[in-house]
Nucleic acid binder design. Sequence first.
RNA 1: GCCCCUGUAGCUCAGUGGUAGAGCGUGACAUUGGUAAUGUCAAGGCCAUGGGUUCAAUCCCCAUCGGGGGCUCCA
Length: 621
Amino acid sequence: MRTASRPALGLSCRSHGIIESEHGARYPPDPPGARGGQRTDHCRREASGLMPPPLDELRHTAAHVLAYAAQDLYPEAKPTIGPAIENGFYYDFERAEPFTPSDLAALERRMHEIVAADYEMTGEQVTREAAVRHFAQNPFKVELAEAIPQGEPITLYTIGGFTDLCRGGHAKSTGAIGAVKLMSVAGAYWRGDERNPMLQRIYGTAWPTHAELEAYLLQLEEAQKRDHRKLGAELGLFSIEEDAGGGLVFWHPKGAIVRGIIENFIREGLLARGYLPVVTPHIMSEKVYERSGHLENYAHGIFGPLEVEGQRFRLKPMNCPGHILIYKSEGRSYRELPLRYAEFGTVYRFERSGTLHGLTRVRGFTQDDAHLFCMPEQLQAEFEQTADEAIRLITAFGFRDVEYFVGTRDDAVRVASDEVGEVAIRKALESRGLPYDVDAGGGAFYGPKLDINVHDAIGRRWQLGTVQIDFMLPERFELTYRGSDGADHRPVMIHRALAGSLERFFGVLIEHYGGAFPAWLAPVQVVVAPISEHQLGYATTVRDRLRAAGFRAEVDEKSDKLGYKIRHWKTQKVPYILVTGRAEAEAGTVAPNERGHDEKRPPITVDAFVAELRDRITRKL
RNA sequence: GCCCCUGUAGCUCAGUGGUAGAGCGUGACAUUGGUAAUGUCAAGGCCAUGGGUUCAAUCCCCAUCGGGGGCUCCA
């Protein structure tokens, strides 16, 4: 069993933190295809015994080239660290003046010269004292040199006139870098700690050939086209209103329709598996969260108190305490268990303004949340059916690649019951033949968990659902059930959100499908387009028949020409446009124009079209 | 929150130290059309907000607010 410290390969994406928002920060933030802030995962690579790919060496070398260029052009800039990352590299500099876009251009020009000069990369081992002396003017490098563990070699690497403290792993010479481009400049704290000084991070990308660089830039463009914020506005799905504040989502009619479909799909699954709907308040007395431990463990994520008649209330950051109160409201018998309470529970969590991002990082969102209260001996079966339901969901929404991460609790806080939970999770996955990685210490504050990540259509990874086992909250709230032995026992809880947050899930779906939702999800499934206003009446009849059949259909009533209408609705990514001209009106047919197909289709009867679309919706295509 | 960039019409963007333009979209009119943009006209902007510099600020400076890109994992 290899151990990945955390998911990090690929373009992974910011997590809401589904139940454990603080965990979200552990995931590498993702510029979905944007600037290149991804990382390589050395842990995993080393653990799996693979040699680092040459690309890493090339990019690490490119980082040196950048530092060399900076030394030449901005000698006052102190280089700190500059690793290779997924898709490129970065180098952090300490410098009073900000690097401007024109500075980047100048640096890039100098880098090209350094690459063209094809300097050989030479390394030498030195003593700690020599290293410290060499970097006497650079406290960051001195700190690094002094931190190298006793017994490990300390090495300096040189290209041309630039020497850097470096562990090594380079291309033989700078000429190996076929194509290099600086992407952006960003602030970054020294060693990632916000108590440390802010450095300037320059991001770049490097490739063996120009063609590969071009392909990469094209890929970035593709990702930008799918950006859910852009598509959300273009397709009228949602907005975030300055007047209301950041991180708060307004679902417009078309987005709300998609949300309703998602909710219905989830609800069907819940009913089929014996869940019971509940609804809980959005604000509750702060005491509830004191007792649950959220106020203690998660204070930074909870909005401040609202004082009413001397009582302090809090906006709901989690749904579990509410569900627990329902459980606790009456005596429970073992005959009732498992009790499965489900709610599309809207929660509010404080996220720092700089971290907000479209639908994927927000302050108010709705989870497809549920809490299962069961006897310990039911835990395994309950966990397994939850895993099955997660798979049903992911599959239905078109995700093919799924990764599972088992988050264990830190050794420091780990108790015997955690072991039980971890075993249950592993057993569930193993019995289904699902491969997984262990995220050591990545569990919730109350227990171990399973995180489900999916890859979208262009390969980016997103964190969606989570299933968490909890022995702690039942303890804190002193939950019991009367057993068959007549004694009181403590139930185990499973927290689970499979889509995660509907906001985030929607954002991921938008990007996954590039806005072109399959017919069963599309907010408008059919637009009936009369060729002239003479067919308006017929078109309306067709629309009404489609609506009667349960479809989401509209008529394009404007007096635009057909070509215009086709273009308009294609850009709106409507699955079907039904052309209705004189011939169709007379014959009682429609001429379908299907999204993704440019060829003309012969007219078919409305009934035939209804059958076609119905079949497609059934198959979720 | 912190760093960098940014804010002109609903959207995408031009522009100037002397109070503004285009395209798309929207509306009206004409046109009644056959598979990715018909034409004409019109409406629409306190140039994010608040200060400052100046005879004069959308433009320069500062602040605030919003938007974008980032913010441990190694020399």
